[in-house]
Design a protein around this nucleic acid. Structure first.
Length: 464
RNA sequence: GGCGCGUUGGCCGAGGAGUUAGGCAAAGGUCUGCAAAACCUUUUACACCGGUGCGAAUCCGGUACGCGCCUCCA
């Protein structure tokens, strides 16, 4: 299959290091607030990647970290600590906040039909691994210690910024006032932050450098090493991670391990709301709950994400979400046809399936893959598929679900009672007993079905 | 100040030098006993100005506007 690699900025043939095994590290949620739809877009894109790799015959070992401590840092400038703030507001500890929002995250995975990653380690369960990695960096001379912690000296890393293609000189020119005058270079970042004296944090640990907590980026480097090895096949994240987080992960991991950190870099583009970035800080984000509050199936959001390409930024509107919901509904009606295979026809459904797969294996071209299916749908307007077509459609839906996770093939046939009602209505229509026919239509609708009388046959579909 | 991205018809969104993307919505119409959550049709879109091509929405240069990153962030 083909996959875009942020490092080379090109679509490349994807070939893992070890035969059919693929090691994948994906940056996960920071659990201190409800995830917003932008977070979910990225997680859905990870899911599409894993599904596509799996379909391509690979065995994917995916790690998705739960950041339950990282947010303790990074509050330097304005002194605001969101995690602590949330904890205070809810009269809970940082630990309780992390636990609560971790469960919210798991619930969201279910609602959006995201296959849970094979391994979801927590940062706080890997403090020792992080300390060990910092020790290695210290022994190799990449670190220095100042008043508030241990820092990584980016000037010791000759290719620092290669992923983002950073222009360090240029950045320096316009850099804001350094928050810490002791830092040697503006890009240097904390590996271990020391707890402020005379202050007890909910989350803090002992270390060779004193009591404190790990820096912003070390958890990913440490957990990737522990679970996937020094060189992984693919590393994923949101595009915002390219210049800082992933850049620093590369610096840490490659300096500590002495080998390339990741062969491929997979980045999901942002979804905007009203043409502006969503962020936890700006408080302009929507959640799955907001979608449900409008009586829209969360799966419609998955549809919205799937019908756009993962590398292109998009703009969220409620109108677009409703359009996606509608499209999903039509796909579901199409899926219902497999139970009604009694018509005539010989459309080449298998060719559509092949085309679908080809698009998916081409850098996850989900919009093109859906397009070929949409074109197929139009051929079944006002007619039922033949038994052969129904069989092929069933196979197509199964394949689509493996790749896209839209749950189209999970429907079952309607029950005998509903079938009987449909039959009775048809008989009434034959006898031109319209009163009885209309009465039965109401009964059928009570079963959650709607009927479409076409010249050739009556086709039912689900209303719920 | 530096780095980078984008601008496609009412909305969302592909494509990317010559061929209708697709979806959703709207309007008109059709089938039908009626109805539809059914079907058909529809005003031929690519920010602007130059350039290179037989030919540009698609390549090059510039302009405008928008957005992102350089600070936690999917």
């Amino acid at each position: 299959m083909k996959l875009f690699n942020t490092m080379s900025r090109q679509v490349e043939d994807f070939v893992p290091q070890n035969g059919k095994k693929v090691s994948l590290y994906t940056c996960g949620p920071t659990v201190y607030l409800d995830p917003h739809i932008g977070n979910w877009k990225t997680f859905i894109n990870y899911d599409l990647l894993v599904r596509t790799l799996t379909q391509a015959g690979y065995e994917v070992d995916q790690v998705l970290n739960i950041t339950d401590v990282g947010h303790l840092v990074g509050d330097g400038d304005d002194g605001e600590d969101k995690m602590a703030k949330t904890a205070t507001e809810q009269r809970k500890t940082a630990w309780e906040i992390a636990e609560h929002y971790t469960s919210v995250f798991y619930e969201g995975l279910k609602q959006l039909n995201i296959t849970p990653p094979s391994n979801m380690p927590k940062a706080t369960d890997h403090i020792q691994e992080q300390i060990d990695m910092i020790k290695v960096l210290e022994e190799k001379g990449f670190t220095y210690t100042i008043d508030d912690g241990v820092y990584f000296d980016t000037s010791k890393c000759s290719d620092y910024g290669k992923l983002a293609r950073l222009d360090l000189e240029g950045q320096q020119a316009g850099a804001r006032v350094q928050e810490n005058a002791q830092k040697r270079n503006p890009q240097d970042f904390a590996l271990w932050k020391l707890s402020p004296k005379d202050q007890k944090r909910d989350m803090e640990w002992d270390s060779p450098w004193g009591t404190g907590f790990p820096g912003w980026h070390i958890e990913c480097s440490a957990m990737a090493l522990k679970y996937l090895g020094a060189t992984i096949d693919i590393h994923g994240g949101g595009i915002d991670h390219i210049p800082i987080h992933h850049t620093n992960e590369i610096a840490q991991s490659e300096s500590a391990n002495g080998v390339e950190f990741s062969k491929f870099w997979f980045h999901s583009a942002f979804i905007d709301v009203d043409s502006t970035k969503m962020s936890k800080s700006l408080d302009n984000f929507y959640t799955i709950e907001d979608i449900k509050a409008k009586n829209i199936d969360p799966m419609a959001f998955r549809m919205l994400v799937v019908q756009a390409h993962y590398r292109k930024g998009s703009n969220f509107t409620w109108e677009a979400l409703e359009a996606a919901a509608q499209r999903l509904k039509h796909l579901r009606a199409f899926a219902d046809l497999v139970w009604q295979g009694s018509g005539e026809g010989q459309v080449d459904v298998k060719a559509v399936e092949q085309s679908f797969v080809k698009h998916m294996q081409n850098d996850l071209n989900t919009p093109a893959a859906l397009e070929v299916v949409s074109n197929l749908l139009n051929q079944f307007a006002n007619r039922l598929p033949s038994s052969q077509e129904a069989s092929d459609i069933r196979a197509l839906l199964g394949t689509m679900d493996e790749y896209l996770g839209l749950k189209l093939s999970e429907t079952t046939d309607i029950d005998e009672f509903a079938k009987q009602l449909l039959l009775e209505r048809e008989n009434a229509r034959q006898e031109k007993n319209w009163e009885e026919s209309d009465r039965l239509r109401v009964e059928i609708e009570k079963q959650g079905l709607s009927v479409n009388d076409t010249p050739k046959a009556t086709i039912w579909s689900r209303t719920s």
